[in-house]
Design a protein around this nucleic acid. Structure first.
Lengths: 194, 194
DNA sequence: CTGTTACTAGTACCAAGTGCTAATCCGGAA
DNA sequence: TTCCGGATTAGCACTTGGTACTAGTAACAG
């Protein structure tokens, strides 16, 4: 016996996890067993065939693409918005957002949430950030739910420049504040209520 | 003739673009033609069969997973670095980084490049951004290569606070500037050469 | 009436399997 | 030693979703 059956099946699982493209024949060669043995192993472990594996991987891709397309527009989920006035978005910080070493969210994710919210709240197709002044008040850990509140400062806004203030909190504690100076491409309308 | 051939082939392409999972049989039904006609259409248009389509989609996934993992650590490629002094990184702006409507790079990508470079240049395992003051000087279009230069401002740094200035350019033209106040978790060492 | 184009139909074949039956091998217990 | 059982291997029929190729039909154009 080259490798005990149980061990082989464990390895088989791992192998396919990180490379789902292997055929039974290739696997058989890799473990120096017959193709039939590999089939039995897959059967016992409930591992689907190559074509099914590719299908699920491909499905995941399509899903992620949709997700990333959406998130390309706004980082976080907008849960409330009044154009030209205020908006709120929500971002769940996952392991993907943090430094591995200390579990603290990387600054640019908080910035991205705030900045894209500032863009979204502007009632303009072509709003751009000109400058911004930001403060990372308190580190944010993985697992936190960050709520960003954006408010348009009408009084400080002039012509094509608009000031948006964003405050992000976790459990009502401020973790981030930012003042964004936005540039709107189309001239300010007096009142845009249709 | 249900739908003129050319039109059908165009639709076929679009359809498969956004749903590569359709079999010839399903497509034949959808267009009310025979399976053979679909095959001919695919042949003429150079559209591969279902299994090949899934394979490429799945491959893309695997690739993107690697990419997004890498980009978690540093946004852009660091091409030069002297710890505690200066660093340079390079970011190629693709369609993924820009607003669809005007092709201008979203601010948070430039910020992310600059911020992660500021973190990287700090000779500290646990550096965090405390605040920053940034300026988007000039819009960046897709296809641009952004070079970010970070410089540690020794003279303005005190204790655990360090100032890092980042200037990003495209073709020697400044597009972004930022001043990052960083917090280092371990106390400043006098000289760390070695 | 003859082409040409578009479409349809049918066959042989392939890859990568499933499902099933039937050997064969090998180690340990009676 | 012999027999049993789990592990392994082999072989065959069948399935999907195709390719490659041949052949036939329908419609319309010149």
């Amino acid at each position: 016996m080259r490798v005990p059956k149980k061990e082989r099946q464990r390895l088989l699982g791992e192998l396919l996890e990180q490379n789902p493209f292997l055929t039974d024949e290739e696997l058989a060669e890799h473990f120096s067993v017959s193709v039939q043995t590999i089939r039995l192993d897959r059967l016992e472990c409930g591992i689907p065939e190559l074509r099914e594996r590719l299908k699920t991987v491909a499905t995941r891709t399509m899903y992620e693409e949709v997700k990333s397309l959406q998130s390309d527009e706004v980082i976080g989920d907008i849960i409330d918005i009044e154009l030209d006035q205020r908006a709120i978005s929500l971002l769940d910080v996952t392991e993907d957002h943090v430094f591995q070493r200390n579990g603290i969210a990387r600054g640019h994710h908080l910035f991205a949430q705030a900045n894209s919210l500032a863009v979204a709240v502007m009632n303009d197709d072509l709003a751009l950030t000109v400058k911004s002044n930001i403060h990372f008040v308190k580190p944010v850990k993985a697992g936190s739910r960050v709520i960003a509140r954006a408010e348009v400062k009408e009084e400080q806004s002039t012509g094509k420049r608009t000031i948006v203030e964003v405050v992000s909190t976790v459990n009502d504690e401020t973790v981030f504040t930012g003042e964004f100076t936005m540039y709107r491409m189309t001239e300010r309308k007096q009142e845009d209520s249709k």
